[in-house]
């Protein structure tokens, strides 16, 4: 590790607070597993021993929204469920990110039918759209890495008490 080597040489390092904040934020993303249907099983597989999300610092799946900063919406969102999803999203503290896992969450997918919301971006700001029905666990890990890169590009002053939807920096990255 570069950090320990640095410490034995000089005993200190210089960095920007922004960079330090972004680095610590991205290395411990706590996901909120919004498991709704089939994709939730693949999300469980990601937490399981074979794919092991702990390698990326995100094994702390918290079922309460108050402790999370990444919502993984895994499964078909119906109109009845959309109010619940939105409510849980609102309870999460800023800054927060959203992965739309799977085809039906992103666009309605194979469900062109009356109860299904045709894409959760109609009521949520989505950061990553994940293809697949359901996506393979490797694909979810890839999405997590991309979210981490995105978080790494953010700056501390991006989050000055504004709701996420108003922040151009994050939306355009």
């Amino acid at each position: 590790m570069g950090l320990e080597a640095k410490l034995t040489q000089d005993g200190f390092l210089t960095t920007k607070i922004d960079a330090l904040l972004a680095w610590s934020r991205k290395s411990s993303v706590w996901p909120m597993p919004m498991g709704i249907s089939c994709c939730a099983i693949e999300m469980m597989a990601v937490g399981g021993p074979k794919y092991d999300i702990a390698r990326f610092g995100s094994e702390v799946m918290r079922f309460t929204p108050r402790q999370c900063d990444l919502m993984i919406v895994a499964g078909t969102v119906t109109y009845k469920m959309s109010h619940v999803v939105k409510k849980i999203y609102d309870q999460m503290p800023d800054p927060k990110w959203v992965i739309a896992m799977g085809a039906c969450t992103s666009s309605g997918g194979m469900y062109r039918s009356y109860p299904v919301v045709q894409g959760i971006d109609q009521f949520l700001p989505v950061d990553i759209y994940l293809a697949g029905c359901p996506p393979r666990p490797d694909n979810l890990l890839n999405a997590l890495i991309q979210i981490q890169e995105k978080i790494g590009r953010t700056k501390g002053r991006d989050f000055q008490n504004k709701p996420l939807s108003e922040l151009n920096v994050i939306q355009n990255n």
Binding site: Y79, K87, S113, Y114, P115, V117, Q122, F123
Partner: peptide
Amino acid sequence: LGIPGSLPLPKK
């Protein structure tokens, strides 16, 4: 495909 507007969505 249902009847548009028969089921409400939450506000964005």
